[in-house]
């Protein structure tokens, strides 16, 4: 069953309890992600985009509904299957980089391979290879504290690629970076889509991201309000049109 959709979410709901109050962070979302596409999830903070992102990545389980990843129902998996999924199928990139502080760049990239049972020699060889690709070939021995934000995020990208996953999930990957570095990161992600056919899914409110995206999903109040294809996006990019889109979006909050 090699479906064209690497991820299918059906009527996904997620409920949170805020004290006595029930909050639906996701109020029924349907979404299919195609293999090899660059999908951005946009929305104001509190729109549920992080929640949706977490559901898609198997970092959290839906209260209701199903998430099928590569033919498997995430909700029905046991702990070791979920761990396998996170280790082999998905690579994660976070806004705050989340590198292990006590490990060098190389060891950070090696960690997912260690979890996958790869030998140290092989893991080290592959880690240096990937670090070379993201332009940190000489800094493999540095720890996160000795690297700039952009460099840390590149180590994180290398780490997400460690076990050659199908999907790369990036949660606001440019949120803590300056304009230029953010663009480098986006280009790097786009390169992994183009060269290796990776599926990139990114939660963001960074409009730079749109240029690289194949599709953009707009999320407001836990529901998808619209999905735009790449060619529809081009029209709105930059200038006044972009501003308009922004005010339209924030007006709905």
């Amino acid at each position: 069953m090699a479906s064209d959709h690497i991820i299918s979410a059906r009527d996904v709901k997620r409920r949170y309890m805020m004290g006595e109050e029930v909050v639906w962070a996701l109020a029924g979302v349907d979404l299919d992600v195609h293999r090899g596409e660059y999908l951005s999830i946009m929305g104001p903070s509190g729109s549920g985009k992080s929640t949706l992102f977490n559901m898609i990545g198997g970092l959290d389980r839906p209260t209701e509904g199903t998430v099928i990843m590569d033919g498997h129902d995430v909700r029905k998996m046991d702990l070791r299957q979920i761990a396998y999924l996170r280790c082999h199928k998905v690579g994660f990139i976070f806004q705050t980089f989340n590198l292990i502080q006590v490990m060098t760049a190389e060891q950070n990239v090696m960690l997912p391979m260690t979890f996958a049972g790869v030998s140290d020699e092989e893991a080290s060889r592959r880690a240096r290879e990937i670090l070379e690709r993201v332009g940190l070939g000489k800094r493999y021995d540095h720890r996160p504290g000795q690297l700039s934000g952009g460099q840390q995020q590149r180590v994180a990208i290398a780490r997400s690629m460690a076990n050659d996953p199908d999907i790369i999930l990036a949660d606001e990957p440019t949120g803590n970076l300056d304009l230029k570095t953010g663009e480098e990161i986006i280009n790097m992600l786009a390169m992994f889509r183009d060269e290796f056919g990776k599926t990139i899914i990114s939660a963001t409110h960074d409009h730079k991201m749109l240029a690289a995206s194949d599709r953009v999903v707009y999320l407001v109040d836990g529901k998808i309000t619209e999905i735009k294809q790449r060619h529809e996006l081009k029209i709105e990019q930059g200038g006044i049109a972009d501003k308009k889109a922004e005010t339209k979006l924030s007006g709905r909050q």
Binding site: H88, N98, P112, F115
Partner: peptide
């Protein structure tokens, strides 16, 4: 949390 994201049990 990060280690769990990377496949740590």
């Amino acid at each position: 949390g990060t280690m769990k994201c990377l496949g740590g049990l």
